[in-house]
């Protein structure tokens, strides 16, 4: 597939929220990312999918401003990223909750760091705790919650700072399968209802196809975008119809066919 053509068409008719331009990242002699360019349309969910070691998380952390690219740049709403900023919020694979703080303080922690007054940030946090379905657990500690509930806390924290771009680093990989499915459905609702741009790292093909408006397939050593897939037919179907959709199944098979050679 011709990469430049895809980018050009994307630029013409899609509003781009985050744009990665020629980003390379070296760790010593190892090239983790090489000259990677990718656009993320506003208000949509884009998955970064690839075998382990393909640099998906590295790319996500560069977009977050947690890592500096060796060369190239990332633009969020036309502004070059120089570090973490209030326009992006991160959801961590291992939840990254403060074990000594209650759910309420954890959810409010992003706002606390931004200097929002206590009563204000707590009322915002309470709203999002309710939104993610954790009402009644405000004063619980993370170790009293299940893995899935902990990630809901992580999600509520990211939502409560009201960033326009949400960065999710394999957020569901540490929760069990059933919770994970529920999360995926909730995520679809979230993308539909919130006008935010989601960048979603996953290693699960089915998950990527299920939740994404756009899937970027990354291939490793050094990492590059090999393909961009935009599922079109089933996005507006009810959540329980997606997994039996013809196009869904075709895309899953197609992605597996192109990835299987890279799996040891």
């Amino acid at each position: 597939m011709d990469m430049s053509q895809i980018k050009d068409t994307a630029k013409q008719d899609v509003d781009v929220a985050v744009s990665v331009r020629g980003v390379s990242k070296n760790y010593g002699d190892v090239e983790a990312l090489k000259d990677l360019s990718l656009d993320f349309p506003r208000g949509e969910l884009t998955s970064l999918l690839g075998p382990s070691g393909c640099g998906k998380t590295t790319l996500l952390k560069i977009i977050a401003g947690l890592l500096e690219p060796t060369s190239g740049q990332v633009e969020v709403n036309g502004k070059t990223v120089t570090g973490p900023g209030p326009n992006r919020a991160f959801v961590f694979q291992d939840f990254a909750l403060l074990p000594w703080a209650t759910v309420l303080r954890n959810v409010a922690f992003g706002l606390e760091l931004r200097g929002v007054a206590k009563s204000e940030r707590e009322s915002i946090a309470e709203k999002y705790i309710k939104d993610v379905g954790l009402a009644g657990f405000e004063n619980s500690y993370p170790h009293e919650l299940s893995g899935g509930m902990r990630q809901r806390v992580g999600l509520a924290r990211a939502l409560s700072v009201d960033a326009k771009v949400l960065l999710l680093d394999e957020p569901f990989s540490a929760v069990d399968e059933q919770t994970r499915r529920k999360f995926q459905e909730d995520l679809l609702a979230l993308v539909k209802n919130e006008n935010k741009t989601f960048i979603f790292v996953t290693h699960s093909i089915e998950e990527a196809v299920y939740v994404s408006d756009q899937i970027a397939i990354l291939l490793p050593r050094p990492s590059r975008v090999s393909e961009i897939i935009r599922p079109s037919g089933f996005r507006d179907k009810p959540v329980d119809q997606i997994r039996r959709d013809r196009e869904y199944l075709d895309i899953v098979d197609k992605i597996w066919a192109s990835l299987r050679n890279y799996v040891e």
Partner: peptide, 10 residues
């Protein structure tokens, strides 16, 4: 990741 979390929230 706690340190990264704090950094990412500014």
């Amino acid at each position: 990741s706690l340190v990264e979390m704090a950094k990412s929230f500014g």
